[in-house]
Nucleic acid binder design. Structure first.
Lengths: 336, 336
DNA sequence: CCGCGCGTTGCAAACGATTGCATCCCGGTG
DNA sequence: CACCGGGATGCAATCGTTTGCAACGCGCGG
């Protein structure tokens, strides 16, 4: 099919060894010879066969990425970041969709492990034991999950939450609700913690319960939100927040007039529709990039990066926050 | 690291050749020997080294997928379908994002070509010559583009458009506008053609111009839509349609009361917000699946599939279509 | 003038599988 | 009893690189 190194070598009248070195260790071959080889390669359209190379070097220059669900708008963006960084580093990306099945992850890693130099595991729901086994099979980097022995990258909720709470406080809010996501979610727990921390400056934090992380889940939360009498809410993610806002508005409740809503993630759609959703941006592409770096740099001699990289979140101001409605109920009981 | 075939063979007291055949051609080795080998493999946790195998067989069991932009909600769904089918067929997926640069596609294919058995090219904007070269480098399958010599899969706009126009007609509409997308888009041209066809039954088709394929682009189209006086529009894609609907509603114009809007694609968000967007669904996952099949089956002896596979679109009815407003202007001039 | 060393180059052995061909053994048939 | 055939197995080449080691030639210092 395509030219092999042997043919290049023949055309340049050198041995394959020298031809190989013209690419691998240019300083090891004479200048004239090198140009001759490079020219020959050029003319033949030679591209090194990565399979053959991988066989001898053991490096495949491919990394796997496992995401729970491609349809979740969070992941394509981290994939995009990962792909960009991988490309810069001369590495290809093998994509796997876990299809939301925690039990399927380990088998996935097993098959992938032999074909890649390492795997980026996004939001893995593997149990401890499986994770241990996986880590034994290949190099691993975690996204949205931490493990004492494995490199991981995740979003630090604090800066974003801090800004959000401060922003709400400045607008005059004193009580702020949290519309939660799935019980098992570590991110949810992290967010709650960050909110509690940020609210210590005198803000009252009220838990509005947990809901499915879908637009419909957000709509379901409307009752709880309204019943609580809070003037502002933080929501587990943008999809839910959008669902909530939408539901409220079709019921004739003004956002942000009657209720301020802040989402989470800053997915593309957050800014598309009016009013734009105010949200805590998590740097998805950067997370992808950092994950690739973490995976590839781990163990390198110049590796000084911390095992766990926290990427800062930030508040993105758009149109769903405003001062509390005049006469807003100070306590839930008066409003129910 | 992991066990090699040689070790398995040693443990089972056979030659590597026999060990290999125990997996490749089980019928060629004696029953007892085979179990012995399989057991040894089991105990050692042997997994065939796909690199080594690829080197000799020439099959890598990996296919590449090139998408123009991962952030475009169309592609993750295609990818998901492709990945699912690939997994069924024992093949891995190498992901590449062309980053919306037509010139970058050929280099991408060049590097990818040697590492994969074939490439699925989504909505490629390569010029003819580049496509020819790419086709010479590796096996190709096209998504959202056709080429006389290459297998391709694309959505057939006709069924969906037919349903859409009929639906609008039944509601009482007589004039229907089309909010177009990018000039260069083949899909746009296909859709126009399909609409013209469907409108031959007495519907008046009015061209509303071309706009960027973004939510903002949809909003920009509002003037043209309003000015035209049509009571219903088809829009190039859901994102634009959503942008249009949103823009109209914030201006106090009722959708679907004053204007019926039908989008295109049926992305996840189409159904999330109220009113749900009525849209022409294109079977994105199925397209991905079909693309993998087309790529892998091409040239197989039992390959009877047509070179170009048309997957049917269909109308999904949600909340953005309704009978025309009473007293709607029959002609644009009266409305401007 | 001889030899040492270094900069270049080639030889050949890996890497871990697959596979055509040769070999061997066994039972059945003439 | 010899021969033949076929099923089971092993030998060894091969895929296309990389890379340790040896070889070679040349210039320079002693």
């Amino acid at each position: 099919m395509v030219a092999t190194l042997r043919e290049v070598a023949a055309r340049a009248q050198v041995s394959v060894a020298t031809a190989s070195r013209a690419f691998q260790r240019p300083d090891m071959v004479g200048a004239a010879t090198r140009t001759r080889i490079l020219e020959a390669a050029q003319e033949l359209g030679y591209v090194a066969n990565s399979t053959a190379r991988a066989l001898v070097t053991g490096r495949r220059d491919v990394v796997g990425v496992v995401v729970p669900d491609l349809l979740n708008p969070f992941y394509p963006a981290v994939l995009k970041g990962a792909r960009a960084r991988a490309r810069e580093r001369g590495v290809q990306l093998l994509l796997a969709d876990a299809e939301e099945e925690p039990e399927g992850e380990l088998p996935l890693v097993r098959t992938l492990a032999q074909q890649v130099d390492g795997i980026v595991l996004c939001s893995s729901r593997m149990d401890e034991a499986s994770l241990r086994e996986a880590a034994g099979l290949t190099r691993l980097a975690l996204v949205n999950r931490t493990d004492p022995g494995l490199p991981g990258v995740l979003a630090d909720p604090e800066p974003g939450v801090g800004e959000a709470v401060r922003h709400l406080a400045e607008l005059g809010h004193t009580r702020i609700g949290y519309v939660g996501g799935p019980e098992a979610s570590r991110s949810d727990a992290d967010r709650r913690r960050a909110i509690a921390l940020a609210c210590r400056t005198g803000m009252e934090q009220v838990d509005l319960g947990r809901f499915p992380p879908t637009a419909d889940g957000g709509a379901q939360a409307a009752e709880a939100v309204l019943g609580s009498g809070v003037g502002a809410v933080l929501v587990y993610n943008d999809v839910m927040a959008l669902g909530l806002v939408d539901h409220l508005r079709t019921r004739g409740i003004d956002v942000p007039g009657a209720l301020s809503v802040i989402g989470w993630d800053d997915i593309e759609f957050a800014g598309m529709l009016a009013p734009g959703l105010t949200t805590v941006r998590v740097p998805r592409a950067e997370i992808g990039e950092a994950a690739i770096d973490a995976l590839l740099d781990r163990g390198a001699d110049d590796d000084v990066a911390p095992l766990h990289r926290l990427l800062p979140t930030e508040l993105v101001l758009r149109g769903t926050t405003a001062p509390p409605a005049r006469g807003a109920a100070p306590a839930p009981s008066q409003n129910v």
